[in-house]
Design a protein around this nucleic acid. Structure first.
Lengths: 229, 229
DNA sequence: CGTTTTTTGTGTTTTACAGCACAAAGTTAC
DNA sequence: GTAACTTTGTGCTGTAAAACACAAAAAACG
Protein backbone atom coordinates (compact mmCIF):
# COMPACT_ATOMS: atom_id res chain seq x y z
CA UNK A 1 0.00 0.00 0.00
CA UNK A 2 1.25 3.44 -0.97
CA UNK A 3 1.15 6.04 1.78
CA UNK A 4 0.14 9.55 0.82
CA UNK A 5 2.86 10.99 3.01
CA UNK A 6 5.47 9.08 1.04
CA UNK A 7 4.03 10.48 -2.15
CA UNK A 8 3.99 14.06 -0.95
CA UNK A 9 7.61 13.75 0.03
CA UNK A 10 8.33 12.91 -3.57
CA UNK A 11 6.28 15.71 -5.12
CA UNK A 12 8.27 18.41 -6.83
CA UNK A 13 7.87 21.42 -4.63
CA UNK A 14 6.35 23.60 -7.32
CA UNK A 15 9.39 25.88 -7.18
CA UNK A 16 9.04 26.05 -3.40
CA UNK A 17 5.87 27.99 -3.95
CA UNK A 18 3.78 26.43 -1.22
CA UNK A 19 3.62 27.49 2.39
CA UNK A 20 3.49 24.75 5.03
CA UNK A 21 -0.26 25.34 5.41
CA UNK A 22 -0.81 25.04 1.67
CA UNK A 23 1.18 21.80 1.58
CA UNK A 24 -0.93 20.47 4.44
CA UNK A 25 -4.13 21.42 2.64
CA UNK A 26 -3.02 19.69 -0.54
CA UNK A 27 -1.99 16.58 1.33
CA UNK A 28 -5.40 16.34 2.98
CA UNK A 29 -7.18 16.43 -0.39
CA UNK A 30 -4.72 14.28 -2.34
CA UNK A 31 -5.54 10.81 -3.54
CA UNK A 32 -3.24 8.17 -4.99
CA UNK A 33 -3.99 5.50 -7.57
CA UNK A 34 -2.02 2.95 -9.53
CA UNK A 35 -2.59 2.44 -13.25
CA UNK A 36 -1.55 -0.69 -15.08
CA UNK A 37 0.35 -0.76 -18.37
CA UNK A 38 -1.74 0.73 -21.19
CA UNK A 39 -4.55 1.68 -18.84
CA UNK A 40 -6.34 4.90 -19.74
CA UNK A 41 -5.93 7.76 -17.26
CA UNK A 42 -8.26 10.22 -18.93
CA UNK A 43 -9.97 10.45 -22.29
CA UNK A 44 -10.71 13.05 -24.91
CA UNK A 45 -13.92 14.77 -23.87
CA UNK A 46 -13.60 14.07 -20.15
CA UNK A 47 -14.04 16.96 -17.76
CA UNK A 48 -10.74 17.66 -16.02
CA UNK A 49 -11.21 17.52 -12.26
CA UNK A 50 -7.72 16.98 -10.83
CA UNK A 51 -4.17 18.06 -11.20
CA UNK A 52 -2.27 14.82 -11.80
CA UNK A 53 1.20 14.06 -10.58
CA UNK A 54 3.05 11.09 -11.98
CA UNK A 55 4.90 9.72 -8.96
CA UNK A 56 6.38 6.61 -10.57
CA UNK A 57 6.04 5.24 -14.08
CA UNK A 58 5.68 6.72 -17.55
CA UNK A 59 2.71 8.29 -19.28
CA UNK A 60 1.85 9.14 -22.90
CA UNK A 61 -0.49 11.99 -23.82
CA UNK A 62 -2.06 11.49 -27.21
CA UNK A 63 -4.81 12.52 -29.55
CA UNK A 64 -7.01 10.29 -31.64
CA UNK A 65 -7.01 11.51 -35.20
CA UNK A 66 -8.64 10.57 -38.47
CA UNK A 67 -9.49 6.88 -38.74
CA UNK A 68 -8.60 6.03 -35.15
CA UNK A 69 -4.91 6.74 -35.69
CA UNK A 70 -3.38 8.13 -32.52
CA UNK A 71 -0.67 10.77 -32.33
CA UNK A 72 1.39 11.01 -29.15
CA UNK A 73 1.79 14.73 -28.49
CA UNK A 74 3.66 14.63 -25.20
CA UNK A 75 4.97 12.24 -22.59
CA UNK A 76 5.38 12.55 -18.84
CA UNK A 77 8.11 11.08 -16.68
CA UNK A 78 8.21 10.72 -12.91
CA UNK A 79 8.06 12.98 -10.99
CA UNK A 80 6.01 15.40 -13.07
CA UNK A 81 2.68 17.23 -13.05
CA UNK A 82 0.33 16.83 -16.00
CA UNK A 83 -3.33 16.93 -16.94
CA UNK A 84 -3.84 20.59 -15.98
CA UNK A 85 -3.83 22.28 -19.38
CA UNK A 86 -7.49 21.68 -20.18
CA UNK A 87 -8.65 22.75 -16.72
CA UNK A 88 -6.65 25.98 -16.84
CA UNK A 89 -8.04 26.79 -20.28
CA UNK A 90 -11.59 26.02 -19.06
CA UNK A 91 -11.91 23.27 -21.61
CA UNK A 92 -12.69 19.58 -21.62
CA UNK A 93 -9.74 17.34 -22.37
CA UNK A 94 -8.75 17.45 -26.03
CA UNK A 95 -6.16 14.72 -25.48
CA UNK A 96 -6.14 11.37 -23.75
CA UNK A 97 -3.54 9.94 -21.39
CA UNK A 98 -2.48 6.35 -20.79
CA UNK A 99 0.28 4.60 -18.90
CA UNK A 100 3.29 3.39 -20.90
CA UNK A 101 4.02 1.14 -17.95
CA UNK A 102 2.65 0.61 -14.42
CA UNK A 103 2.32 4.10 -12.96
CA UNK A 104 1.44 5.64 -9.61
CA UNK A 105 -0.44 8.89 -9.90
CA UNK A 106 -1.39 11.38 -7.20
CA UNK A 107 -4.42 13.55 -7.82
CA UNK A 108 -5.23 16.95 -6.34
CA UNK A 109 -8.61 18.62 -6.96
CA UNK A 110 -7.99 21.17 -9.70
CA UNK A 111 -10.31 23.69 -8.07
CA UNK A 112 -8.03 23.78 -5.06
CA UNK A 113 -4.98 24.26 -7.25
CA UNK A 114 -6.65 27.06 -9.14
CA UNK A 115 -7.68 28.69 -5.89
CA UNK A 116 -4.15 28.56 -4.55
CA UNK A 117 -2.64 29.77 -7.84
CA UNK A 118 -4.98 32.76 -8.02
CA UNK A 119 -3.58 33.95 -4.71
CA UNK A 120 -0.04 32.53 -4.84
CA UNK A 121 1.78 34.19 -7.73
CA UNK A 122 4.80 31.92 -7.35
CA UNK A 123 2.56 28.90 -7.91
CA UNK A 124 0.91 30.55 -10.92
CA UNK A 125 4.33 31.37 -12.30
CA UNK A 126 5.37 27.72 -11.97
CA UNK A 127 2.59 26.82 -14.39
CA UNK A 128 3.39 29.76 -16.69
CA UNK A 129 6.90 28.40 -17.10
CA UNK A 130 5.81 24.83 -17.67
CA UNK A 131 3.10 25.79 -20.17
CA UNK A 132 5.43 28.14 -22.04
CA UNK A 133 7.98 25.35 -22.31
CA UNK A 134 5.39 22.82 -23.48
CA UNK A 135 4.01 25.21 -26.10
CA UNK A 136 7.45 25.69 -27.60
CA UNK A 137 7.91 21.93 -27.79
CA UNK A 138 4.51 21.51 -29.35
CA UNK A 139 5.21 24.10 -32.03
CA UNK A 140 8.51 22.44 -32.87
CA UNK A 141 6.81 19.07 -32.97
CA UNK A 142 4.20 20.31 -35.43
CA UNK A 143 6.87 21.28 -37.93
CA UNK A 144 9.00 18.19 -37.35
CA UNK A 145 6.10 15.83 -37.86
CA UNK A 146 4.77 17.61 -40.93
CA UNK A 147 7.92 18.43 -42.84
CA UNK A 148 10.43 15.68 -42.14
CA UNK A 149 10.54 12.43 -44.02
CA UNK A 150 9.85 9.12 -42.41
CA UNK A 151 13.46 8.40 -41.41
CA UNK A 152 13.86 11.86 -39.95
CA UNK A 153 10.69 11.53 -37.91
CA UNK A 154 11.66 8.14 -36.51
CA UNK A 155 15.19 9.28 -35.69
CA UNK A 156 13.69 12.26 -33.93
CA UNK A 157 11.34 10.06 -31.91
CA UNK A 158 14.20 7.88 -30.71
CA UNK A 159 16.12 10.97 -29.59
CA UNK A 160 12.94 12.39 -28.07
CA UNK A 161 12.52 9.24 -25.97
CA UNK A 162 16.11 9.43 -24.85
CA UNK A 163 15.67 13.05 -23.83
CA UNK A 164 12.34 12.38 -22.11
CA UNK A 165 13.11 9.17 -20.24
CA UNK A 166 16.88 8.88 -20.30
CA UNK A 167 19.00 5.78 -20.73
CA UNK A 168 20.04 2.82 -18.62
CA UNK A 169 23.44 2.40 -16.96
CA UNK A 170 25.10 1.55 -20.28
CA UNK A 171 24.31 5.08 -21.42
CA UNK A 172 22.75 3.90 -24.66
CA UNK A 173 19.67 1.76 -24.00
CA UNK A 174 16.40 3.67 -23.69
CA UNK A 175 14.64 3.40 -20.33
CA UNK A 176 11.28 3.14 -22.02
CA UNK A 177 10.09 0.12 -24.04
CA UNK A 178 7.48 1.32 -26.48
CA UNK A 179 5.64 -1.05 -28.81
CA UNK A 180 6.17 -0.63 -32.53
CA UNK A 181 2.73 0.92 -32.62
CA UNK A 182 3.80 3.46 -29.99
CA UNK A 183 6.84 4.31 -32.10
CA UNK A 184 4.53 4.79 -35.07
CA UNK A 185 2.18 6.99 -33.04
CA UNK A 186 5.11 9.09 -31.89
CA UNK A 187 6.47 9.47 -35.39
CA UNK A 188 3.30 9.97 -37.42
CA UNK A 189 3.60 6.88 -39.56
CA UNK A 190 1.99 3.47 -39.93
CA UNK A 191 3.14 0.59 -37.73
CA UNK A 192 4.50 -1.23 -40.80
CA UNK A 193 6.69 1.72 -41.66
CA UNK A 194 7.91 2.09 -38.07
CA UNK A 195 8.96 -1.58 -38.11
CA UNK A 196 10.55 -1.30 -41.53
CA UNK A 197 12.45 1.86 -40.73
CA UNK A 198 13.64 0.55 -37.36
CA UNK A 199 14.98 -2.50 -39.21
CA UNK A 200 16.73 -0.22 -41.67
CA UNK A 201 18.36 1.67 -38.77
CA UNK A 202 19.58 -1.67 -37.34
CA UNK A 203 21.03 -2.66 -40.73
CA UNK A 204 22.85 0.65 -40.90
CA UNK A 205 24.28 0.16 -37.42
CA UNK A 206 22.52 3.20 -35.96
CA UNK A 207 20.62 1.27 -33.30
CA UNK A 208 20.31 -2.25 -31.92
CA UNK A 209 17.00 -3.85 -31.04
CA UNK A 210 16.20 -6.51 -28.45
CA UNK A 211 12.45 -6.94 -28.48
CA UNK A 212 11.20 -3.53 -27.48
CA UNK A 213 14.52 -2.41 -26.08
CA UNK A 214 16.21 0.20 -28.23
CA UNK A 215 19.95 0.76 -27.92
CA UNK A 216 21.39 3.83 -29.58
CA UNK A 217 24.66 2.97 -31.33
CA UNK A 218 25.33 6.11 -33.36
CA UNK A 219 23.64 9.12 -31.86
CA UNK A 220 25.42 11.61 -34.11
CA UNK A 221 24.10 9.87 -37.19
CA UNK A 222 20.58 9.85 -35.75
CA UNK A 223 20.87 13.57 -35.02
CA UNK A 224 21.95 14.14 -38.58
CA UNK A 225 19.08 12.12 -40.03
CA UNK A 226 16.66 13.92 -37.74
CA UNK A 227 17.96 17.34 -38.80
CA UNK A 228 18.06 16.59 -42.51
CA UNK A 229 14.44 15.42 -42.56
CA UNK B 1 1.86 59.99 -35.02
CA UNK B 2 0.50 57.40 -32.61
CA UNK B 3 0.23 58.55 -29.02
CA UNK B 4 1.15 56.05 -26.35
CA UNK B 5 -1.82 57.10 -24.27
CA UNK B 6 -4.16 56.17 -27.11
CA UNK B 7 -2.51 52.78 -27.34
CA UNK B 8 -2.72 52.08 -23.64
CA UNK B 9 -6.43 52.88 -23.72
CA UNK B 10 -6.81 50.10 -26.24
CA UNK B 11 -4.75 47.50 -24.40
CA UNK B 12 -6.70 44.58 -23.04
CA UNK B 13 -6.62 45.07 -19.32
CA UNK B 14 -4.97 41.72 -18.58
CA UNK B 15 -8.11 40.57 -16.77
CA UNK B 16 -8.07 43.79 -14.78
CA UNK B 17 -4.97 42.52 -13.08
CA UNK B 18 -3.06 45.79 -12.95
CA UNK B 19 -3.24 48.42 -10.24
CA UNK B 20 -3.21 52.07 -11.35
CA UNK B 21 0.45 52.28 -10.33
CA UNK B 22 1.33 49.20 -12.38
CA UNK B 23 -0.50 50.61 -15.41
CA UNK B 24 1.40 53.84 -15.03
CA UNK B 25 4.70 52.01 -14.81
CA UNK B 26 3.94 50.02 -17.94
CA UNK B 27 2.89 53.13 -19.83
CA UNK B 28 6.15 54.86 -18.97
CA UNK B 29 8.20 51.97 -20.39
CA UNK B 30 6.02 51.20 -23.38
CA UNK B 31 7.08 51.87 -26.95
CA UNK B 32 5.03 51.79 -30.11
CA UNK B 33 6.11 50.87 -33.62
CA UNK B 34 4.44 50.30 -36.97
CA UNK B 35 5.36 47.35 -39.18
CA UNK B 36 4.63 47.21 -42.86
CA UNK B 37 3.03 44.29 -44.67
CA UNK B 38 5.28 41.23 -44.57
CA UNK B 39 7.83 42.98 -42.36
CA UNK B 40 9.53 40.68 -39.86
CA UNK B 41 8.78 41.44 -36.20
CA UNK B 42 11.13 38.90 -34.67
CA UNK B 43 13.13 35.95 -35.96
CA UNK B 44 13.96 32.44 -34.90
CA UNK B 45 17.00 32.67 -32.65
CA UNK B 46 16.38 36.24 -31.47
CA UNK B 47 16.49 36.93 -27.75
CA UNK B 48 13.02 37.94 -26.58
CA UNK B 49 13.17 41.30 -24.85
CA UNK B 50 9.62 42.62 -24.92
CA UNK B 51 6.04 41.59 -24.44
CA UNK B 52 4.36 42.56 -27.70
CA UNK B 53 0.84 43.80 -28.06
CA UNK B 54 -0.75 43.93 -31.47
CA UNK B 55 -2.78 47.14 -31.36
CA UNK B 56 -3.97 47.15 -34.95
CA UNK B 57 -3.27 44.79 -37.83
CA UNK B 58 -2.69 41.07 -38.20
CA UNK B 59 0.35 38.95 -37.42
CA UNK B 60 1.49 35.43 -38.37
CA UNK B 61 3.75 33.35 -36.15
CA UNK B 62 5.63 30.73 -38.10
CA UNK B 63 8.52 28.35 -38.10
CA UNK B 64 11.01 27.73 -40.86
CA UNK B 65 11.23 24.01 -41.54
CA UNK B 66 13.22 21.70 -43.77
CA UNK B 67 14.30 23.34 -47.03
CA UNK B 68 13.11 26.82 -46.11
CA UNK B 69 9.45 25.81 -46.09
CA UNK B 70 7.58 27.82 -43.47
CA UNK B 71 4.74 26.57 -41.31
CA UNK B 72 2.40 29.11 -39.74
CA UNK B 73 1.76 27.82 -36.22
CA UNK B 74 -0.37 30.65 -34.84
CA UNK B 75 -1.79 34.02 -35.78
CA UNK B 76 -2.53 37.10 -33.71
CA UNK B 77 -5.37 39.54 -34.17
CA UNK B 78 -5.77 43.02 -32.67
CA UNK B 79 -5.91 43.58 -29.76
CA UNK B 80 -3.80 40.71 -28.49
CA UNK B 81 -0.56 40.01 -26.63
CA UNK B 82 2.04 37.77 -28.19
CA UNK B 83 5.76 37.08 -28.27
CA UNK B 84 6.02 36.18 -24.57
CA UNK B 85 6.23 32.38 -24.75
CA UNK B 86 9.97 32.16 -25.36
CA UNK B 87 10.77 34.70 -22.66
CA UNK B 88 8.63 32.92 -20.06
CA UNK B 89 10.28 29.60 -20.92
CA UNK B 90 13.72 31.22 -20.69
CA UNK B 91 14.41 30.37 -24.31
CA UNK B 92 15.34 32.20 -27.45
CA UNK B 93 12.58 32.50 -30.02
CA UNK B 94 11.90 29.20 -31.78
CA UNK B 95 9.41 30.88 -34.09
CA UNK B 96 9.39 34.02 -36.18
CA UNK B 97 6.67 36.64 -36.50
CA UNK B 98 5.73 38.86 -39.41
CA UNK B 99 2.89 41.22 -40.25
CA UNK B 100 0.14 39.91 -42.53
CA UNK B 101 -0.74 43.55 -43.12
CA UNK B 102 0.34 46.93 -41.75
CA UNK B 103 0.39 46.52 -37.97
CA UNK B 104 0.89 48.73 -34.95
CA UNK B 105 2.65 47.00 -32.10
CA UNK B 106 3.23 48.18 -28.54
CA UNK B 107 6.21 46.74 -26.69
CA UNK B 108 6.74 46.41 -22.96
CA UNK B 109 10.08 45.23 -21.54
CA UNK B 110 9.58 41.57 -20.70
CA UNK B 111 11.65 41.86 -17.53
CA UNK B 112 9.13 44.34 -16.18
CA UNK B 113 6.24 42.05 -17.06
CA UNK B 114 7.94 39.10 -15.41
CA UNK B 115 8.63 41.19 -12.31
CA UNK B 116 5.01 42.24 -12.06
CA UNK B 117 3.73 38.72 -12.72
CA UNK B 118 5.94 37.22 -10.02
CA UNK B 119 4.19 39.43 -7.49
CA UNK B 120 0.76 39.84 -9.07
CA UNK B 121 -0.90 36.42 -9.19
CA UNK B 122 -3.81 37.72 -11.23
CA UNK B 123 -1.41 38.81 -13.94
CA UNK B 124 0.39 35.47 -13.82
CA UNK B 125 -2.94 33.69 -14.07
CA UNK B 126 -3.81 35.73 -17.16
CA UNK B 127 -0.80 34.19 -18.89
CA UNK B 128 -1.55 30.71 -17.52
CA UNK B 129 -4.95 30.84 -19.19
CA UNK B 130 -3.65 32.15 -22.49
CA UNK B 131 -0.78 29.65 -22.64
CA UNK B 132 -3.05 26.75 -21.70
CA UNK B 133 -5.43 27.75 -24.45
CA UNK B 134 -2.63 28.08 -27.02
CA UNK B 135 -1.16 24.71 -26.09
CA UNK B 136 -4.47 22.98 -26.68
CA UNK B 137 -4.74 24.66 -30.09
CA UNK B 138 -1.19 23.67 -30.93
CA UNK B 139 -1.79 20.03 -30.03
CA UNK B 140 -4.93 19.96 -32.15
CA UNK B 141 -3.05 21.60 -34.99
CA UNK B 142 -0.31 18.97 -34.87
CA UNK B 143 -2.79 16.18 -35.45
CA UNK B 144 -4.81 18.08 -38.05
CA UNK B 145 -1.76 18.92 -40.11
CA UNK B 146 -0.25 15.46 -39.91
CA UNK B 147 -3.25 13.20 -40.37
CA UNK B 148 -5.65 15.03 -42.66
CA UNK B 149 -5.42 14.96 -46.40
CA UNK B 150 -4.76 18.02 -48.47
CA UNK B 151 -8.39 19.04 -48.91
CA UNK B 152 -9.09 18.61 -45.22
CA UNK B 153 -6.09 20.72 -44.28
CA UNK B 154 -7.03 23.55 -46.62
CA UNK B 155 -10.68 23.50 -45.53
CA UNK B 156 -9.47 23.67 -41.95
CA UNK B 157 -7.21 26.62 -42.70
CA UNK B 158 -10.07 28.57 -44.25
CA UNK B 159 -12.21 27.92 -41.17
CA UNK B 160 -9.24 28.74 -38.95
CA UNK B 161 -8.87 32.13 -40.64
CA UNK B 162 -12.56 32.81 -40.21
CA UNK B 163 -12.35 31.95 -36.52
CA UNK B 164 -9.17 33.96 -36.02
CA UNK B 165 -9.96 37.11 -37.96
CA UNK B 166 -13.68 37.00 -38.55
CA UNK B 167 -15.61 38.02 -41.64
CA UNK B 168 -16.71 41.25 -43.29
CA UNK B 169 -20.21 42.69 -43.11
CA UNK B 170 -21.54 40.15 -45.60
CA UNK B 171 -20.84 37.45 -43.00
CA UNK B 172 -18.91 35.30 -45.48
CA UNK B 173 -15.82 37.10 -46.77
CA UNK B 174 -12.68 36.62 -44.70
CA UNK B 175 -11.22 39.78 -43.17
CA UNK B 176 -7.70 38.62 -43.94
CA UNK B 177 -6.22 38.42 -47.45
CA UNK B 178 -3.44 35.84 -47.37
CA UNK B 179 -1.33 35.09 -50.41
CA UNK B 180 -1.54 31.61 -51.89
CA UNK B 181 1.83 30.96 -50.31
CA UNK B 182 0.42 31.94 -46.90
CA UNK B 183 -2.46 29.53 -47.45
CA UNK B 184 0.08 26.83 -48.28
CA UNK B 185 2.13 27.65 -45.19
CA UNK B 186 -0.96 27.46 -43.03
CA UNK B 187 -2.02 24.15 -44.51
CA UNK B 188 1.30 22.32 -44.82
CA UNK B 189 1.33 21.94 -48.58
CA UNK B 190 3.09 23.39 -51.59
CA UNK B 191 1.87 26.65 -53.10
CA UNK B 192 0.87 24.80 -56.28
CA UNK B 193 -1.35 22.48 -54.30
CA UNK B 194 -2.91 25.36 -52.36
CA UNK B 195 -3.79 27.06 -55.66
CA UNK B 196 -5.06 23.83 -57.19
CA UNK B 197 -7.19 22.89 -54.20
CA UNK B 198 -8.61 26.40 -53.81
CA UNK B 199 -9.66 26.20 -57.47
CA UNK B 200 -11.26 22.84 -56.81
CA UNK B 201 -13.23 24.35 -53.90
CA UNK B 202 -14.43 27.15 -56.21
CA UNK B 203 -15.52 24.61 -58.84
CA UNK B 204 -17.45 22.74 -56.18
CA UNK B 205 -19.17 25.92 -55.03
CA UNK B 206 -17.66 25.81 -51.55
CA UNK B 207 -15.94 29.18 -51.78
CA UNK B 208 -15.60 32.13 -54.16
CA UNK B 209 -12.31 33.86 -54.87
CA UNK B 210 -11.64 37.45 -55.86
CA UNK B 211 -7.89 37.85 -55.95
CA UNK B 212 -6.86 37.14 -52.39
CA UNK B 213 -10.32 37.63 -51.00
CA UNK B 214 -11.95 34.38 -49.92
CA UNK B 215 -15.71 34.16 -49.55
CA UNK B 216 -17.14 31.12 -47.81
CA UNK B 217 -20.21 29.84 -49.66
CA UNK B 218 -20.82 26.50 -47.98
CA UNK B 219 -19.40 26.41 -44.47
CA UNK B 220 -21.08 23.14 -43.54
CA UNK B 221 -19.42 21.38 -46.45
CA UNK B 222 -16.04 22.86 -45.48
CA UNK B 223 -16.56 21.66 -41.91
CA UNK B 224 -17.33 18.21 -43.23
CA UNK B 225 -14.26 18.11 -45.46
CA UNK B 226 -12.14 19.36 -42.58
CA UNK B 227 -13.48 16.71 -40.22
CA UNK B 228 -13.20 13.82 -42.65
CA UNK B 229 -9.57 14.56 -43.45
C1' DC C 1 -1.14 -27.27 -22.17
C1' DG C 2 -2.99 -26.04 -26.61
C1' DT C 3 -5.88 -22.20 -28.45
C1' DT C 4 -6.75 -17.57 -29.39
C1' DT C 5 -5.28 -12.99 -29.76
C1' DT C 6 -1.91 -9.58 -30.26
C1' DT C 7 2.37 -7.98 -31.95
C1' DT C 8 5.98 -8.11 -35.19
C1' DG C 9 7.79 -8.58 -39.69
C1' DT C 10 7.86 -8.57 -44.96
C1' DG C 11 6.39 -8.20 -49.77
C1' DT C 12 3.26 -5.94 -53.19
C1' DT C 13 0.16 -2.49 -54.90
C1' DT C 14 -1.75 1.94 -55.02
C1' DT C 15 -1.98 6.84 -54.56
C1' DA C 16 -1.54 11.34 -52.72
C1' DC C 17 1.33 14.75 -53.09
C1' DA C 18 5.91 16.93 -53.93
C1' DG C 19 8.81 18.52 -57.55
C1' DC C 20 9.55 20.51 -61.71
C1' DA C 21 8.67 23.20 -65.82
C1' DC C 22 6.55 26.86 -67.84
C1' DA C 23 2.89 30.36 -69.13
C1' DA C 24 -0.04 34.16 -67.86
C1' DA C 25 -1.31 37.80 -65.00
C1' DG C 26 -0.23 41.23 -61.74
C1' DT C 27 3.05 44.30 -59.26
C1' DT C 28 7.07 47.06 -58.63
C1' DA C 29 10.80 49.60 -60.31
C1' DC C 30 13.05 52.83 -63.18
C1' DG D 1 5.83 53.14 -70.61
C1' DT D 2 8.35 49.20 -70.54
C1' DA D 3 11.46 46.17 -68.20
C1' DA D 4 12.13 43.12 -64.27
C1' DC D 5 10.27 40.60 -60.82
C1' DT D 6 6.68 38.33 -58.21
C1' DT D 7 2.52 35.84 -57.79
C1' DT D 8 -0.81 32.90 -59.69
C1' DG D 9 -2.20 29.10 -62.40
C1' DT D 10 -1.79 24.43 -64.90
C1' DG D 11 0.09 20.17 -66.64
C1' DC D 12 3.26 16.28 -66.18
C1' DT D 13 6.38 12.98 -63.73
C1' DG D 14 8.37 10.62 -59.98
C1' DT D 15 8.23 8.83 -55.58
C1' DA D 16 7.48 8.44 -50.53
C1' DA D 17 4.58 6.42 -47.82
C1' DA D 18 -0.12 4.54 -47.02
C1' DA D 19 -2.97 0.54 -47.74
C1' DC D 20 -3.47 -4.11 -48.09
C1' DA D 21 -2.37 -8.86 -47.48
C1' DC D 22 -0.45 -12.39 -45.09
C1' DA D 23 3.18 -15.20 -42.34
C1' DA D 24 5.72 -15.85 -38.15
C1' DA D 25 6.52 -15.03 -33.46
C1' DA D 26 5.10 -13.81 -28.95
C1' DA D 27 1.84 -13.07 -25.37
C1' DA D 28 -2.52 -13.79 -23.13
C1' DC D 29 -5.91 -16.83 -21.66
C1' DG D 30 -8.96 -20.51 -20.33
Amino acid sequence: MIKKEDVLAKLPDLDGALSPEERELILSKMQVRTYRKNETIYQEGDIPSHLLCLVTGKVKIYKEGVGGRAQIVRVADAVEYFGYRAAFADEIYVTAAAAFETSVIATIPIGLVRQLAMRNSQLAWFFVRRLAWALGKSDARTVNLTQKHIRGRLAESILFLKESYGVEDDGRTLCVCPSREDMANLSNMTTSNAIRTLSAFVQEGLIALDGRKIKILDEDALQKISRMG
